[in-house]
Amino acid sequence: MPPGLGDTERAVASTIATWLYPPAGALGVSGAADRVSVYVDDYAARLPTASRLQFRALLHAMDRGFGPWAGRPTARLTEARPKDVAAYLTAWAKAPTYTQRMLFEGLRTVLMMAYASDPEVRARCGIPWLGDT
């Protein structure tokens, strides 16, 4: 398989997953867990080239968009305080522009596939997991 994500892209995915799936949640499994970013990496590697490039570009756009949004052009999403990450990602999720909302939803779907495919998450929700069968 070709390589999936670069280091920055992985870090962006991990930052967003940590906000979406905080460690203090009812399931007690954090999106920061390595296996979420490992899954996303593996998923990206399986995508056809054009789709993979689009996905990687979306992660970069999320990262690069943070500085202008925060009024500090060089600021990076991956280095932002949790409070700012939350505000920035909420702005994407509730964006007035349809395309922006849909882009965020697409990214959220991939991270959800990673999170919901985690055997521990499934066990805590009582959902069967086919990985071991």
Binding site: Y21, G25, R108
Partner: peptide
Amino acid sequence: ADPAVFSIRFPVEGLAFQEWMARWP
């Protein structure tokens, strides 16, 4: 299909999201 497909309907906010995940049964 799979919770990974349908859970997008749950609230985005992390804590509420996980509460809903736990309600899948």
